[in-house]
Computed example of a mutant assay.
Amino acid sequence: MKKLLIISDKNEARSQMAEKWLNYYGKKHLKVYSAGINKGSISILAQKAMAEAVMDIPEYKSKLLSDLNEDTFDFVLCFDKGFSEKLPEFPGNPELSVFDVPNPAMVEGEENVKLQAYNVVCNAIDDACFIFMQKRFKIVQ
Rank of each mutant, 00 (worst) to 15 (best):
M1V: 07
K2H: 14
L5Y: 11
I6G: 08
N11W: 10
N11M: 12
E12A: 13
S15R: 08
E19S: 04
E19V: 01
K20S: 01
K20F: 04
L22C: 06
N23D: 10
N23V: 03
Y24V: 10
G26D: 15
K28I: 03
K28P: 00
H29I: 05
S34V: 09
S34T: 12
A35H: 13
G36I: 00
I37C: 07
N38F: 14
K39T: 00
K39Q: 15
I44E: 15
L45P: 08
L45A: 07
A46C: 09
M50C: 05
A53Y: 03
V54H: 09
V54P: 01
M55C: 09
M55R: 05
P58N: 08
P58T: 00
P58M: 00
S62L: 05
L64R: 12
D67K: 13
L68R: 13
N69P: 00
N69S: 10
F73H: 08
F73R: 08
F75Q: 13
F75H: 14
V76C: 10
V76M: 10
G82V: 09
S84N: 02
K86I: 00
L87K: 05
P88D: 12
P88V: 10
E89S: 14
E89R: 10
F90N: 09
G92E: 11
G92K: 12
P94I: 02
L96K: 12
F99C: 02
F99S: 02
D100R: 08
D100A: 15
N103Y: 12
N103G: 14
A105Y: 06
E108I: 04
E108W: 01
G109I: 05
G109D: 01
E110N: 11
E111I: 06
N112D: 14
N112Q: 12
V113H: 04
V113D: 09
K114R: 15
Q116N: 13
A117P: 04
Y118C: 01
Y118M: 05
N119E: 11
N119K: 14
V121Y: 01
C122M: 08
C122Y: 03
C122N: 08
C122F: 01
N123S: 13
A124M: 15
I125Q: 06
I125S: 02
D127F: 04
A128V: 00
A128C: 13
C129W: 09
C129T: 15
F130P: 00
Q134K: 07
Q134M: 04
K135Y: 07
R136D: 05
R136K: 14
K138H: 13
Q141N: 15
